[in-house]
């Protein structure tokens, strides 16, 4: 995969897990929810694949994502917290809804765009940020899973580039429609502060204002996610001018 310069406007630093366990608990809960959702999405994808190799591929992906969720749960136990997850939390539910719409339309390409481009870009960027600051095995687990998500992303980019080469305009139009839906939800989820109520994943009040205690911030996670998204779209060959407009037009 093409290597893009890493633009990182914020400093990093480490903290000990004990005092910040409740914060990691919520960070893990969000990550775990995302993994379960991914596992569900890949399982659904396997149902619309015709080719046995594609079916096996999707099921293997689903298994992988369940493995990620289990790894996050195990990290929680190590620091003495129970990591919950909630794929029915409002933002996640909407994301799942969009994916299921693609499934209903038997739109394999749409499914890849939603799960492997949009959601994986977000997972890769946020896990990588967390990996930089999370102490010990927690950080290592986030780094390892980020690396695997990067592979998922590369896999999808290769397929989608070929698809785009067939009819760029059609591909970009479809992409834009899904972008409006999925990325609007993702940016709402990643907003600096949750203006429209509880996310239904954090165990108590919203974790965002406390993230600074573990050298993270909602601003950073959103910024890194949007940056990764733009870089991924560059890899697909969608003109940078166009994708910049898409991203700057998202609601904040």
């Amino acid at each position: 995969m093409e290597r893009v310069a890493c633009l990182d406007p914020s400093p990093t630093e480490c903290t000990s897990p004990s005092s910040s366990a409740p914060i990691w608990q919520d960070v893990l809960a969000h990550a775990m929810t995302g993994e379960f959702l991914a596992a569900m999405n890949y399982a659904s994808l396997s149902e619309i694949c015709a080719d046995p190799a594609e079916i096996a591929d999707a099921l293997e992906h689903a298994q992988n994502e369940r493995g990620h969720a289990a790894a996050f749960a195990a990290e929680g136990r190590k620091i003495g917290v129970e990591v919950a997850n909630n794929v029915d939390a409002r933002h996640w539910k909407r994301l799942r809804g969009t994916f299921l719409q693609c499934i209903a339309e038997r739109d394999f390409i749409g499914c890849l765009i939603v799960q492997e481009i949009m959601l994986e870009s977000f997972a890769l960027a946020s896990y990588s940020r967390v990996a930089k600051v999370a102490p010990g095995s927690l950080g290592k687990t986030f780094a390892r899973i980020a690396a695997e998500e990067e592979e998922h992303l590369a896999h999808a980019v290769a397929i989608l580039k070929t698809e785009r080469a067939r009819d760029a305009q059609r591909f970009d139009d479809k992409f834009y429609r899904l972008h409006l839906d999925v990325m609007t939800t993702l940016t709402q989820m990643l907003a600096k502060d949750c203006k429209d109520g509880h996310c239904e994943v954090c165990h108590a009040s919203c974790v965002k204002p406390s993230l600074f205690e573990v050298s993270l911030s909602a601003v950073q996670l959103r910024g890194a996610s949007l940056q990764q998204y733009l870089k991924t779209l560059d890899m697909l060959g969608i003109p940078g001018q166009v994708t910049l407009t898409w991203v700057t037009q998202l609601p904040v």
Partner: peptide
Amino acid sequence: LPDDEIKDIFPWIPPRAL
């Protein structure tokens, strides 16, 4: 975009044509 959001988002945009 509000000024604070601009300052938060802008630095993350990878270089590209306008």
